[in-house]
Every structure is written in structure tokens, then in C-alpha cells.
């Protein structure tokens, strides 16, 4: 780990200025990913600007029934918040499915969104990686990649996004709020993570120096009827192989609204919009769920060693939708 300077910001404006001053500066939230990567030499900031104690924490109920979750709210506090659990159960479940109690106690909402991939080659300085060193190549494509992407990847990068929380946020049409020295801005989660293309190192659409201040969850009738299911190599404390955040609102025997997002399959949380369209207005039958799951994976391009993720994701979508259809509200 290279030597670095440390500043603790008392105000958002101080933090923005401190980062703007130094091209090598990084915001420090809970540090659970950044400090890990600094020890590995993957991240080499010259200055850390600690934003963890900025007054950006807390969960507020919005007039539309949605929520505004402050960027420095810890994962634990998000998951334990009664309004999160009541209005967006899949979000609470997703957060609790990630990491461990200790990590969730310090990891922040903003930091969670900015997690880097856990692709082993990304963290191995002896191997090429287009995310770490643009233009150096991708070691995963011709290497070991059973847990890499099946959707939306490119010849330049096949890494997946590790966040569970972001998968639920994708399903709920969340919006990311940020601040720069030029003012405040918003980016819908659907555009927050750009397509991989030929620049896998460009991981978010945030302007340079921007600080995430909050995540907005629009209110909706479907969100309380939501679930998150995560499949991984062991029962807990592991990243997803495939995960599904889904919400289902059945009225009068017809699907009124449905949301499906997948984790562990792409460089970003993967919203399965066309699959939702298949189901919307249809009856919630096993056949319908199968068709919907098939549609969600219709563009999948598995790599030589991760083809199993396609049927796994399909099966998981069907499982979660069936579980939601069987709940009291939807019967």
C-alpha cells in the first residue's frame, strides 16, 4: 500500500473540494472494498477523503411512498429499517444476503454501489485486466471464468458486478443522487452503470469528483411484494453466482406489475425488462413464468465455463416468481 494523505470532511463541500484538489484522491466510506484493494495494490490513492461521518445518513419516507436513503447509511441500518422492510422487502433481503454482519455494520449505501468486481484477475497485478489497466487485455476470457458474466459482456471484459443491494435497487427503478462542485445531479440506476463496451474501466456514469449523497426509491404498489433470492457456493458469506430480485403484483388473477433484476450475470445489475413485458397483463401461471424466464435469458452468451448460469438464472426467476405468486397478497 502506497503512502497517502487522509482528510476527514466535515461538510459535503469540503469533501468535494478535497477530492477536486488531487487527481489521485478517493472518497472513503466504510472502506470495506477500498481498503481491501489498497492492500492488494489495485487501488493506489494519494489522498483519502473520509465521508463516512458526513450528515448523509438515514432513511426518509418520501411523499410518493418511496424512500430516500442517505449515502452514508450503513448496510445494516438500511436492512433493519422498518420502512425498508415494509415497503421494499427485497432490498432488505438483498442487503442482508451480502457480506457479513461485521461488514454490513460499516459498509455504506454509496460505497456498495461503487464496489469493484471480484474477478480474480482484476485483483492479480501479474495478469492483464482491462478494468485495472485499460488496454492490457482480459485474462478471464481465456482463463478461469465459471462465475463470470453471461449477459452484456464484451470481448474486453466479462466481469460481474458484486453488489446484492444494487440488484434490488435496479428492480425498484432507484435513482442515484450526487453532488459535484457544479451542483447536484441525479442518475437513474438503469443508466448508472454504463455498458461494458470497450471501456470496462468506466464503471459508472458519475461525473468526475462526484459524491453520491442518496439513493431514491420511488414508491410503487409492487415493491412491498418483493423477494430476493441468492445462489452462491456456500450458504452464507459469499458473492452471488446468480441472484434474483423480483416483485409481483397480481390483481384479479392478472399480473398488474412485475419487476425482475438479476445479479451475478453481468457487469451491472441486470434488469430484465423484456421478460417483465411478457408477464405484464398475463395470468401468473407456471407456463407464463417459464416463458418469462426464457425471455430474460434470451440474449445470454455464456462463456465456455459458465453455461450453467443460464439455466440456473432461469430456474431461479421461476422460483422467485412462483414464491411471490403464492403469497397471500397475490392470491
Amino acid at each position: 500500500m502506497r503512502e497517502f494523505a487522509y482528510r476527514r470532511a466535515a461538510r459535503v463541500s469540503d469533501a468535494l473540494t478535497a477530492v477536486a484538489e488531487d487527481a489521485g484522491a478517493r472518497y472513503l466510506g466504510g472502506g470495506t472494498n477500498l481498503v481491501d484493494l489498497m492492500k492488494r495494490g489495485v487501488e493506489e490513492p494519494t489522498r483519502l477523503v473520509d465521508v463516512r461521518r458526513l450528515p448523509l445518513d438515514g432513511v426518509q419516507v418520501a411523499p410518493d411512498g418511496g424512500l430516500v436513503v442517505g449515502a452514508t447509511t450503513t448496510n445494516s441500518d438500511v436492512a433493519a429499517h422498518p420502512e425498508v422492510r415494509r415497503r421494499f422487502p427485497a432490498l432488505a433481503l438483498a442487503v442482508l444476503s451480502g457480506a457479513s454482519g461485521q461488514l454490513r455494520n460499516v459498509a455504506t449505501v454509496g460505497g456498495n454501489l461503487l464496489q469493484r468486481t471480484r474477478c480474480g484477475y482484476f485483483a492479480d497485478l501479474s495478469r492483464p485486466c482491462n478494468k485495472r489497466v485499460p488496454g492490457s487485455g482480459c485474462a478471464a476470457i481465456g482463463g478461469v471464468h465459471p462465475n463470470h458474466a453471461v449477459l452484456g459482456h464484451s470481448e474486453h471484459c466479462v466481469a460481474t458486478h458484486p453488489s446484492d443491494m444494487a440488484v434490488a435497487l435496479a428492480a425498484f427503478d432507484a435513482v442515484v443522487r450526487y453532488q459535484t462542485l457544479d451542483g447536484a445531479g441525479e442518475i437513474p440506476l438503469s443508466r448508472f452503470y454504463p455498458p461494458v463496451g470497450d471501456r470496462p474501466d468506466r464503471e459508472t456514469a458519475l461525473p468526475p469528483g462526484a459524491l453520491i449523497t442518496a439513493v431514491v426509491l420511488p414508491g410503487s404498489a409492487v415493491s412491498p411484494r418483493s423477494r430476493y433470492r441468492k445462489v452462491r457456493e456456500r450458504a452464507s458469506y459469499a458473492f452471488a453466482i446468480v441472484s434474483v430480485a423480483a416483485a409481483l403484483d397480481v390483481r384479479d388473477g392478472v399480473v398488474h406489475d412485475v419487476r425482475i433484476a438479476l445479479g451475478g450475470v453481468a457487469s451491472r445489475p441486470w434488469r430484465a425488462g423484456s421478460a417483465e413485458a411478457v408477464l405484464r397483463g398475463a395470468r401468473p401461471t407456471a407456463d407464463g413464468f417459464r416463458t418469462c424466464a426464457d425471455e430474460a435469458l434470451s440474449d445470454a452468451k455464456p462463456l465456455p465455463d459458465n453455461g450453467y448460469k443460464v439455466p440456473l438464472a432461469r430456474n431461479l426467476i421461476r422460483a422467485v416468481l412462483a414464491e411471490l405468486a403464492a403469497t397471500e397478497e397475490n392470491r
Binding site: 465459471p146 430456474n315 421461476r318 422460483a319
Partner: peptide
């Protein structure tokens, strides 16, 4: 006994209605 070796493609889901 990895899950990708056990997985049965096209399986009906748990608690299917």
C-alpha cells in the same frame, strides 16, 4: 459436489403453484 454439477436445467422451481 458443486452446484453447477448438481443443477438440473429446466427444473420446476421450489414452491411452484
Amino acid at each position: 459436489v458443486r452446484l453447477d454439477r448438481v443443477l438440473e436445467p429446466g427444473r420446476a422451481a421450489v414452491r411452484e403453484p
